[in-house]
Amino acid sequence: MDDLLVVERIRKAWDVVALEDVSLRLPPGHIMGIAGPNGSGKTTLIRLILGHIRPDGGAIRVFGDDPGLSGRAIRSRIGFVLDRPISYEHLSVTRLGRLVADFYADWDEVEFQRLLDEFELPGRRRASALSRGMRVKLGLALALAHNAELLVLDEPTTGLDPVFRRELLARLSAIIADGRTSVLFSTQILTDLDRVADFAVFLRGGRVVFSGPKDDLLDRWAIVRGGPELAAAAGADAVRGIRRSRMGFDVLFDDMDAAKPYCDGPAVLERPTLDDVFLLLGSKESQ
């Protein structure tokens, strides 16, 4: 099946964040997590996908179409939770539901009510009286009640307690279980990608520093921590980052087999965590 989302060599100057040469692909039935610190371009990328802004260069295709030209048709198949998870908080949960329902031909009121029940959202409560977590849930209920094929979530886990974070991520993997729907979410917390994400994208300063199946990172990549003699590894093909540590060097390899020759003696070989990868990726040995 065709990719739901294709981003090709996007450039966009926007406020302080400038996206440079960003490319991604998301096939149906998968979860893509975009991680990066504040100002790395996550929200800008999401705005481009939703057609809120246009790229300066490159191309974006959502369901095969340009969101700048057929934004309306594309958005009818997208469910979204933005960094402000909902709006018009002066309305009650039910009234907000009705307001949003008007916009979707495929609105499923039964499903919406079921989600409200499941998320324990009181229909008569004003949205302004909901906690951030509850607002994210309401946003998610709104996003899931119209048979969306692509879910776009901008930092849904920010400000949530760990229990609800887990619950939310678990829900994402339930959403894609139909094999048709995909999820794209951004986060500042790398461990959000740990389990359910199929594809990980790391953004730093508007550039993609890693993009690919997350399992590649966790299963194939390796870190060698060792003494000063590791400096010799710097030139190797498989080396993706190297950083001076207190004892010598930490070297990130994208191939465990290539790393093994370097860990004779006191050097140790480790599977990297996502944090390790993010920290080391692209870093050069500083003198």
Partner: peptide, 12 residues
């Protein structure tokens, strides 16, 4: 897909 959902791991 249901295994991935139940185990909370990626489909891949």
């Amino acid at each position: 897909r249901s295994l991935a959902r139940d185990l909370q791991v990626s489909v891949i």
